[in-house]
Design a binder for these strands. Sequence first.
DNA 1: CTGAATCCCTGCCGATACTG
DNA 2: CAGTATCGGCAGGGATTCAG
Lengths: 120, 120
Amino acid sequence: MAHQTVSRPGLPDDPRADAAAPSPSCPVEIALDALRGRWTTLVVRELLRGDRSFTELRTALPALSDKVLADRLAHLVGAGVLVRHREPGVPPRTRYSLTERGRRLGPVLQALWDWGAATP
Amino acid sequence: MAHQTVSRPGLPDDPRADAAAPSPSCPVEIALDALRGRWTTLVVRELLRGDRSFTELRTALPALSDKVLADRLAHLVGAGVLVRHREPGVPPRTRYSLTERGRRLGPVLQALWDWGAATP
DNA sequence: CTGAATCCCTGCCGATACTG
DNA sequence: CAGTATCGGCAGGGATTCAG
């Protein structure tokens, strides 16, 4: 429940909104942590357009190294943003696709986009 | 203009949405850069509640060191999120307050909060 | 094809001490 | 009161190499 009665305009009526120090249980930090790291939002963007294989992601983001791509994918899986589907056989195939939670990042990225695109 | 006709569902119809590599001109990166760094969102939260002096911010966030607080404030000023008002005299007084742009971070933080608070 | 292992380099952040 | 100066530890990210 993120939207109870709000007693302070513009801020959630939740004890976590009063944290005096960074905390992993703060929803804002959870979200920023999911998006943390170079290339992360670009990987999410690719997957918002449809599921992709490892190689398809490399092709879409040529300047992204294998290691960092694997890091980002593992991180996003851990954050519950996407899932990895291994299809058995040789050569191995793997597909990545967004979870429902991952798809809900769409509006979040839109909010970030709108803020960054607005003229100062 | 961030909201022309959208030809791809959920994504802006803007060339910057197709970037093949991280770019400082991408609106999403502009926004994430403004919020980048530990403590940054907590400083913004304090200022969303009203303008503050350096010492008031230290009091509200006791575990935050002087150096990092000064770093964060300078960074947020550079990002156009807040402004510093120096009041001449001894002892020196300085007040920090959000710009209009900074106030518009409210909905952005709300979107991040809602995503992070949602059950997976 | 899809990664994991390793190395190195850079930048962040915290602690401490000092100044107009 | 409101910062700056300096230093050190550690994690992020890139290049390269190797493996299932």
